[in-house]
Simulated assay, not measured.
Amino acid sequence: MNKRQNVTIKGTKDGLTLNLDDSCSFHELKKELDDKLSATYRVHEDRPLIHVRLETGNRYLTNAQQEELKMLVRQKKNLIVEEIRSNVITKEEAEALRKQHEVLTLARIIRSGQVVEVTGDLLLIGDVNPGGTVKAGGNIFIMGTLRGMAHAGCYGNEEAVIAASSMKPSQLRISDCINRAPDHAINVEKHEMECAYINENRQIIVDRLQGLVHLRPNLTRLEGGR
């Protein structure tokens, strides 16, 4: 009978993927990983670095155990750990993910000098007055007039959008892109909701809200919806 393999190595165009069994002991896993890497990847001074991804399945690794695996791989000189992926997350990580995907609803007016910042999406029922600021890690939806500053995707999410019933901002920001208010938002009274998003040229574009469903189809999260 063949012995069960705790470590399987797969080469990819980006480097190596090491699939680590999640049912054996951590000691057994480390020993087999060390043996296989030592037998296959000997030190060559002229060999370029090979990036390694570790797939740990349903095994939870402490920070110390992750460092042990990284050190074991680094000892092979030409290998470097790029990522450790697991199906298991901590309660703290799960709570952070929940906050990133929740929609916070506020019914108020954001006045000059006030700043509202949320981790996930923001639904504001009210206006943002000049000098007021709203920031969100996700999207910003304003059921009112935006006259102040709105910053969506403030933690780096370039897929985030800003939508408002009346778009007259002093400034729009999405991720690290910045755009002043479009001229028409100041000079022409609009009677339809508009949205702002980053286009393929990394410029903030303001357009009719109706086009958003095609630009950001993942905004629709209703089960069974189309």
Rank of each mutant, 00 (worst) to 15 (best):
Q5Y: 05
Q5D: 15
T8L: 06
T12Y: 11
K13W: 10
G15M: 08
G15L: 08
L16Q: 09
N19L: 10
L20R: 06
D22F: 12
S23I: 08
S25G: 11
K30G: 05
K31A: 15
E32R: 07
L33K: 07
S38H: 13
R42V: 09
R47M: 14
P48W: 08
V52L: 11
R53F: 09
E55P: 03
G57M: 10
T62W: 04
A64H: 11
L72T: 05
V73T: 06
N78F: 01
I80R: 14
V81Q: 05
R85T: 12
N87S: 11
N87V: 03
I89R: 15
E92A: 14
E93W: 06
E93M: 12
E93H: 06
A94D: 08
E95I: 10
E102M: 08
L104R: 09
T105C: 06
R108C: 07
R111C: 02
S112Y: 00
G113K: 03
G113I: 00
Q114I: 10
V118D: 02
D121F: 01
L122P: 00
L124I: 01
I125P: 00
I125Y: 09
N129M: 13
P130E: 11
P130R: 09
G131C: 04
G131D: 04
T133Q: 06
N139H: 13
F141S: 13
M143Q: 11
M143V: 01
M149P: 00
Y155S: 08
S165P: 01
S165R: 13
M167N: 04
M167H: 03
S170K: 09
S170Y: 06
L172R: 05
R173E: 11
S175P: 02
C177I: 09
I178F: 10
I178C: 13
N179F: 07
N179G: 05
A181Y: 05
H184Y: 12
N187Y: 12
M193I: 00
A196D: 02
I198K: 08
N199H: 01
N199I: 00
N201C: 04
Q203H: 12
R208A: 13
L209P: 00
L209V: 11
L209G: 02
L212G: 03
H214I: 07
R216P: 02
G225K: 07
